[in-house]
Design a binder for these strands. Structure first.
Lengths: 210, 210
DNA sequence: GTTTTAATGAATGTATACAAAAATAATAAT
DNA sequence: ATTATTATTTTTGTATACATTCATTAAAAC
């Protein structure tokens, strides 16, 4: 029991990993002893982590006790896009000043290059990861704590949806040019074009453009 | 130990009550044994509830262990309004169909009457409570699970901010007529007027109108 | 053979217990 | 008197343990 830091937060991340890797499957009750042993901790920190993930919309409480990986309806997936389209313009607008600094521009470009590479490799998972990184970085740059906190939940929910492929298999190659366009608008500081660019980018996952 | 339901969820509500009533004070470490004994439970369900409230933005982890009631900066309070102004139009738009049904109209009117009464009594806390009820009801009617979930956290954060009166003491009497106007727009189904009405209503808490 | 009932097994939910760490108080030194 | 250092007390964090409830299987009745 010689822990320098608490276990609940790291365990939260590891549960997410297990979902992403398919160890924890949707709609199936999570067996606490099994998972806690696999993670090398007791059920106490595991359950605390599960509470966090519950309120982040990753897990959901079952009718008669226990939890499972949340199952998303089509409507709930649509809601994810709608909320992103509403919140991200606020964050990106706030991120514009920080994007005047070169180190931040370089970091954003690096993420874009990461995606280009994934596109070349036809690595769908890599593309999705780079996509999320792009938005996470801008939200962090925005300094908006509230949207950052909401995003931390949205991000995980999206990862589950992507993983389970409940969502229409979008042509992810179209995401890269959208990011390029968005970056240019942000670097330029063209706030008027922002809303349209973001909405155009966030939504097509559901309604793929022609 | 003969409990029919789990304790963590009810304990979550009771912690919120303790914050609202001033038993738990901002920026002060929450003593788990003290609170758990007061609530008549052990530290286990208390800590699970605290994890939930942590990710809802009500509590925050301290540097070296433990948690306290979250302290809000002025910027974070502004963020609350911004996010509300972005999300509530989506929910209210979705609530319009449900507001064609008489029972829902009656219920909404009842909440408005509740606020009128609080205004007459000059009961600031009552006004604030009715205000939150108004928005909670519409969000629930919208059927948007995601915004409902986000709102459950926002609502608690706002209650803390109101309680601590970090926020500019708005002339709460102005809230009632705004609700009336919003109701009329919603009943009419005048979607174009929605965004403006909501933004006008949600924001003045920070920038009080003349 | 099907349905109902009992019985066994497993899994959750929480209380107790203990070790590590932090905060506080007390003592010593300058 | 003030600061530094040590000792004491509190408090967190987690493991263990147990009671209750849920699920599954076996048995019995019809």
């Amino acid at each position: 029991m010689s822990e320098l830091a608490e276990l609940a937060h790291p365990v939260t991340d590891r549960i997410v990993d297990m979902i992403a890797s398919g160890s924890l499957v949707r709609a199936e009750r999570i067996k606490e002893v099994e998972v806690s042993e696999k993670l090398g901790v007791s059920r106490i920190p595991l359950r605390e982590a599960m509470r966090t993930l519950e309120s982040q919309g990753v897990l959901e409480a079952r009718e008669r006790g226990g939890m499972n990986v949340r199952a998303f309806t089509a409507a709930q997936i649509q809601e994810l896009s709608d909320v992103r389209a509403a919140l991200e313009p606020i964050a990106m607008r706030a991120a514009v000043p920080a994007l005047q600094e070169k180190p931040n521009r370089i970091a954003l470009n690096a993420i874009i290059e990461e995606m280009k590479w994934a596109v070349e490799q036809r690595d769908r998972r890599g593309i999705a990861a780079a996509d999320i990184d792009f938005h996470s970085f801008l939200i962090e740059l925005s300094g908006n704590d509230l949207i950052g906190n909401i995003w931390s939940g949205l991000r995980l929910q999206m990862q589950i949806v992507f993983r389970l492929e409940l969502c229409v298999p979008t042509n992810l190659e179209h995401v890269a040019p959208k990011h390029l366009a968005l970056r240019d608008v942000l670097f330029r500081g063209d706030l008027d074009g922002l809303e349209a660019s973001i909405a155009d980018h966030v939504r097509p996952e559901i309604r793929p453009s022609t």
